[in-house]
């Protein structure tokens, strides 16, 4: 077991080193793409907190991502850069508040109802930004300046610089990754995993599970919001599509593709998804057809996702054939 944790630790260090070195060798286009993977990785990790750890299948996670992205665009002044720390804090708080409001309602339901209701509330958020003047309609809003990380008169780094933006996103992703790992082994995290395993028993042991689920929902919403902020800063514009239910399905697919119940899996899933989309869209304009096929194949033939693949291969070799 210790050998296994060692290998995992080394693997994570190698991946981190490779990610840190990447801007030195990669082209601007691909550096931006890796940054996008990291942002979506945070988004997927936040959803995994619900789906993989608490057992709540939310099909509306794009709402918190999109609301925070819009918050950045709406808070930022039109002709000057905003303060990064202010917009970041405000946007994350707003998405957490939205998650609290929606969570209070949707967590009254379970099973199929929960899936449908989370989807429906996301659609409501979509319409609020799509139909009203607030969100600039279907065209969305441009962010004219990247926010500045100013603290008083001091500017520790500059996001207008591509590679510095990349390192900032990488740092946030690592923080979220480590943070989620810590939360999962905390008393709170253990309760979430217990709820996924057997919620009824958790209740009879004295845990008011609604409060824990609400806590997980708000935390996941806040982290999705953090991803949304980074997305807005990285690409410089927001559209209602960020809140669309396809975005929710998309991020859920990342979690499953990578393997749910593991922050590594979530990031892996985000990377695989972006890579597949890029590869397929080079092949054909009808790349969604291939994507749909991949989704069917993963669910039918790859339970446990990519992260379970090495273990399954090992088992296959050991048993000497495809049986069992």
């Amino acid at each position: 077991m210790t050998i296994k944790t060692h290998t995992a630790g080394i693997a994570q260090a190698v991946v981190l080193a490779a990610l840190a070195a990447y801007p030195l060798v990669g082209s601007e286009f691909y550096v931006e793409m890796v940054a996008k993977v990291l942002v979506l990785g945070i988004f997927a990790m936040s959803l995994d907190l619900l789906v993989g750890f608490t057992g709540l299948v939310s099909l509306g996670h794009s709402a918190y991502f999109g609301v925070a992205a819009y918050a950045v665009a709406l808070i930022a002044p039109e002709f000057a850069p905003a303060n990064l720390w202010f917009v970041l804090g405000a946007a994350v708080l707003i998405s957490a508040a939205v998650a609290l409001g929606i969570g209070l309602l949707v967590l009254r339901t379970r099973g199929i109802y929960f899936i449908m209701v989370t989807l429906a509330f996301t659609q409501m958020a979509f319409f609020l930004f799509h139909d009203t003047a607030l969100g600039g309609g279907s065209d969305g809003i441009y962010l004219n300046f990247r926010p500045e990380p100013r603290i008083g008169g001091w500017m520790p780094f500059d996001l207008a610089e591509g590679s510095q933006l990349y390192y900032f996103i990488l740092a946030v992703a690592v923080l979220v990754f480590v943070g989620i790992k810590r939360v999962l082994r905390s008393p709170f995290g253990r309760v979430l995993v217990g709820i996924k395993s057997n919620e009824h028993r958790m209740r009879s042991l004295g845990y008011s599970t609604f409060n824990y689920k609400l806590g997980a929902f708000v935390l996941a919403g806040a982290l999705a919001g953090l991803a949304g902020v980074l997305y807005a800063v990285l690409f410089g514009f927001v559209t209602p599509e960020l809140l669309s239910w396809h975005e929710s399905g998309h991020v859920l697919m990342m979690v499953i593709l990578g393997g749910m119940g593991s922050p590594v899996g979530a990031v892996l899933g985000a990377g695989a998804m972006v890579a597949l989309e890029e590869a397929f869209s080079l092949l054909t304009t009808h790349w969604q057809l291939l994507m749909g096929g991949v989704i069917l194949a993963v669910v039918l033939f790859l339970p446990g996702g990519l992260i379970a693949l090495p273990g399954r291969m090992r088992q296959l070799i050991k048993s000497g054939g495809p049986h069992e």
């Binding site: 969604q288 749909g292 096929g293 989704i295």
Partner: peptide, 28 residues
């Protein structure tokens, strides 16, 4: 018929995959 024995999460993903396929078939 392959969906009956699967959990809701898998049903969601499989039918989501079907939407993508149906939309592209329509487009084709």
């Amino acid at each position: 018929v392959h969906l009956y024995k699967r959990d809701h999460l898998e049903q969601v993903l499989l039918t989501y995959g079907l939407i993508l396929i149906f939309e592209e078939l329509r487009s084709l």
